[in-house]
């Protein structure tokens, strides 16, 4: 599901009473406000993801999946995602034992129970000693859970996902949210659920009305209300 920039422009023209007024135009006004609103929406989603309020899998339009071959190191495995890192907005899931079919390309067949758990960098080392943290190496197979980090650049200037404990099977399926391109035309497609379009239009409206007074600047902050509003729209 998706919607076009034209839909947002139509809404903005109504909100700004700009129908046939020629006060605003797409190239000089709307395009910047819509792209800023989309950046804001991405930030709001990121906060919701971090808080565990919603899963990245909810944005089905942006989900992509790729099979990688990991390299085992001492205590962990590295997945080189350098070639795709510019395409990745956020890692949604890492399957450490994917069932694949074919060889070129390898196609993800189905998921097993082997999804790793995302662990932020600041607590990445906690799992070394904590048997109840994902990524701990000493648990029985039935109780263990692998952990993966957010992408990191190592000394060879490549971007990696790190997975702990080290994998016995090198294949890894990474499901991620794709970045979406900036709006450049009124026909540009915004790959988000149509239920979000009013949220984007509201934020674009706020950006366009910045010049109306400095009190409008509080709108640059992602508030609790923004996140709740976004989640409410997605539940519709």
């Amino acid at each position: 599901m998706s919607f076009t920039a034209q839909v947002v422009v139509d809404t903005l023209e109504f909100m700004l009473d700009d129908k046939n007024s020629e006060r605003y135009d797409f190239d000089n006004d709307y395009i910047y406000a819509i792209n800023a609103a989309l950046l804001f929406t991405v930030a709001a989603f990121d906060m919701a993801f971090e808080r565990g309020l919603v899963s990245p899998f909810i944005l089905t339009e942006l989900l992509n999946l790729k099979i990688y071959t990991s390299v085992a190191k001492t205590g962990l495995s590295q997945v080189d995602i350098t070639t795709d890192v510019d395409d990745i907005w956020r890692i949604a899931g890492v399957d450490i034992k994917p069932e694949v079919e074919g060889s070129s390309p390898e196609l993800y067949s189905y998921s097993t129970k082997n999804w790793a758990r995302r662990v932020p960098w600041d607590v990445w080392n906690a799992s070394v000693d904590n048997p109840f943290a994902a990524g701990y190496a000493g648990l029985p197979t039935d109780l263990s859970q692998h952990a993966y980090t957010t992408p990191i650049t190592l000394e060879d200037a490549k971007q990696y996902l790190l997975i702990r404990p080290a994998l016995t099977s090198p294949k890894v399926a990474v499901m991620y949210l794709k970045r979406f391109a900036d709006v450049s035309l009124v026909t540009s497609v915004i790959p988000l659920a149509p239920t979000v379009q009013q949220f984007v239009a509201d934020k674009a409206y706020q950006y366009m009305t910045v010049q109306m007074g400095k009190e409008a600047q509080y709108n640059y902050q992602v508030s609790e209300n923004d996140i709740q509003q976004l989640l409410l729209m997605l539940k519709r």
């Binding site: 565990g52 048997p131 109840f132 994902a134 648990l139 109780l143 263990s144 859970q145």
Partner: peptide, 12 residues
């Protein structure tokens, strides 16, 4: 719902 409890801890 937000409690960070996993199956390893429950089994322990």
């Amino acid at each position: 719902q937000n409690a960070d409890i996993n199956i390893a801890q429950v089994v322990f």
